[in-house]
Deep mutational scan, measured.
Amino acid sequence: LVRYRTISKIPQITLNFVDLKGDPFLASPTSDREIIAPKIKERTHNVTEKVTQVLSLGADVLPEYKLQAPRIHRWTILHYSPFKAVWDWLILLLVIYTAVFTPYSAAFLLKETEEGPPATECGYACQPLAVVDLIVDIMFIVDILINFRTTYVNANEEVVSHPGRIAVHYFKGWFLIDMVAAIPFDLLIFGSGSEELIGLLKTARLLRLVRVARKLDRYSEYGAAVLFLLMCTFALIAHWLACIWYAIGNMEQPHMDSRIGWLHNLGDQIGKPYNSSGLGGPSIKDKYVTALYFTFSSLTSVGFGNVSPNTNSEKIFSICVMLIGSLMYASIFGNVSAIIQRLYSGTARYHTQMLRVREFIRFHQIPNPLRQRLEEYFQHAWSYTNGIDMNAVLKGFPECLQADICLHLNRSLLQHCKPFRGATKGCLRALAMKFKTTHAPPGDTLVHAGDLLTALYFISRGSIEILRGDVVVAILGKNDIFGEPLNLYARPGKSNGDVRALTYCDLHKIHR
Rank of each mutant, 00 (worst) to 15 (best):
E64Q: 15
E64R: 09
Y65A: 11
Y65W: 03
K66G: 07
L67I: 03
L67H: 04
Q68P: 08
A69R: 14
P70W: 01
R71Y: 14
H73C: 05
H73A: 12
H73T: 11
T76H: 03
T76Q: 05
T76K: 01
T76E: 01
H79R: 01
Y80E: 04
Y80K: 03
S81N: 04
P82M: 07
P82E: 03
P82V: 15
F83K: 12
F83W: 10
V86R: 01
W87C: 01
W87T: 01
D88M: 01
D88N: 01
W89V: 04
L92W: 07
V95G: 01
I96G: 04
I96A: 07
T98E: 03
T98Y: 01
V100C: 01
V100M: 01
F101V: 14
F101G: 01
F101K: 07
T102L: 07
P103F: 01
P103G: 01
P103W: 01
P103I: 01
Y104A: 01
S105R: 10
A107S: 11
L109G: 13
L110M: 15
L110Y: 05
T113D: 05
T113Q: 12
E114D: 12
P117V: 06
P118Q: 15
A119D: 01
T120C: 01
C122H: 01
C122V: 01
C122N: 01
Y124T: 03
Y124P: 04
A125W: 15
C126T: 01
C126K: 01
Q127L: 05
P128R: 03
A130T: 05
A130C: 03
V131H: 01
V131C: 08
V132C: 14
D133F: 01
V136G: 08
V136S: 04
D137F: 01
I138W: 14
I138Y: 04
F140G: 01
I141Y: 01
D143H: 01
L145A: 08
A155F: 09
N156G: 13
E158R: 11
E158L: 05
V160G: 01
V160S: 01
S161L: 05
H162C: 11
P163K: 01
G164Y: 11
I166V: 05
I166C: 08
H169S: 05
H169L: 01
H169Y: 10
H169A: 09
Y170W: 01
Y170M: 01
F171W: 04
G173Q: 08
W174D: 01
L176Y: 05
I177F: 07
I177Y: 05
I177D: 01
D178F: 01
M179W: 08
A181V: 01
A182W: 01
A182F: 04
A182E: 05
F185E: 01
L187G: 12
L188A: 13
I189L: 11
I189A: 14
G191Q: 06
G191C: 04
S192V: 07
S192A: 10
G193K: 14
S194E: 14
S194D: 09
E196T: 13
L197S: 03
G199K: 15
L201Q: 01
K202V: 01
T203P: 01
T203K: 01
A204M: 07
R205L: 01
R205V: 03
L207F: 09
R208M: 07
L209T: 11
V210S: 08
V212T: 06
A213Q: 06
A213H: 04
R214D: 05
K215L: 03
L216R: 04
L216T: 04
R218Q: 09
Y219P: 04
Y219V: 13
Y219W: 05
Y222N: 01
Y222K: 04
G223W: 12
G223C: 11
A225G: 13
A225I: 09
L230V: 08
M231N: 01
M231F: 11
C232F: 09
C232K: 01
T233H: 01
T233P: 01
F234Y: 05
A235R: 01
L236D: 01
I237L: 13
A238L: 01
H239P: 01
W240L: 01
I244P: 01
Y246I: 13
Y246Q: 01
A247H: 01
A247G: 01
A247K: 03
G249L: 01
G249Q: 03
N250T: 11
Q253R: 15
Q253N: 14
S258M: 11
R259V: 04
G261S: 04
G261R: 01
L263N: 01
H264Q: 03
N265R: 14
D268Q: 13
G271A: 01
P273Q: 01
S277A: 06
G278T: 01
G278R: 03
L279A: 14
L279W: 07
G281Y: 03
S283C: 01
D286H: 01
Y288E: 01
V289R: 01
V289K: 01
V289P: 01
T295S: 14
F296G: 01
S298N: 01
S298P: 01
V302P: 01
V302G: 01
G303C: 03
G303I: 01
F304K: 04
G305V: 01
S308I: 03
P309E: 01
P309R: 06
N310K: 02
N312P: 01
N312A: 01
E314W: 01
V321I: 15
L323K: 01
I324K: 01
G325I: 01
G325A: 08
S326T: 15
Y329K: 13
A330P: 13
I332M: 04
V336T: 03
S337L: 03
I339H: 03
I339D: 01
I340F: 08
Q341N: 04
Q341K: 07
L343H: 05
S345F: 03
S345Q: 13
G346K: 15
G346E: 11
T347I: 04
A348R: 11
A348E: 08
R349V: 08
R349C: 08
H351P: 03
H351T: 05
T352H: 13
T352R: 12
Q353P: 01
R356W: 07
R356L: 10
R356G: 08
R356Y: 15
R358T: 05
E359L: 02
I361Q: 03
F363C: 09
F363A: 11
H364S: 03
Q365E: 03
Q365D: 10
I366M: 04
I366S: 01
N368Y: 04
R373T: 10
E375K: 11
E376Q: 11
F378I: 08
H380S: 14
A381W: 14
W382C: 01
W382S: 04
S383D: 15
S383C: 07
Y384N: 06
T385K: 03
T385R: 06
I388Y: 15
A392M: 08
V393I: 07
L394P: 02
K395R: 13
K395P: 03
K395L: 12
G396Q: 15
P398E: 01
C400I: 03
L401K: 01
A403W: 02
A403G: 10
D404I: 01
I405A: 02
H408R: 03
S412K: 07
S412P: 11
K418N: 11
K418Y: 06
K418P: 10
F420L: 08
G422E: 12
G422L: 10
A423H: 01
K425G: 11
G426P: 08
L428H: 04
L428Y: 04
R429N: 01
R429H: 01
A430Q: 11
L431T: 02
L431R: 02
A432S: 08
A432K: 01
K434R: 11
K434V: 05
K434H: 10
F435S: 02
K436I: 13
K436Q: 12
K436H: 07
T437M: 09
H439Y: 01
H439N: 08
A440D: 01
A440L: 08
P441F: 09
P442T: 03
G443I: 01
G443A: 03
D444Q: 07
T445H: 10
L446W: 01
L446R: 03
A449R: 09
A449G: 06
A449M: 06
A449W: 01
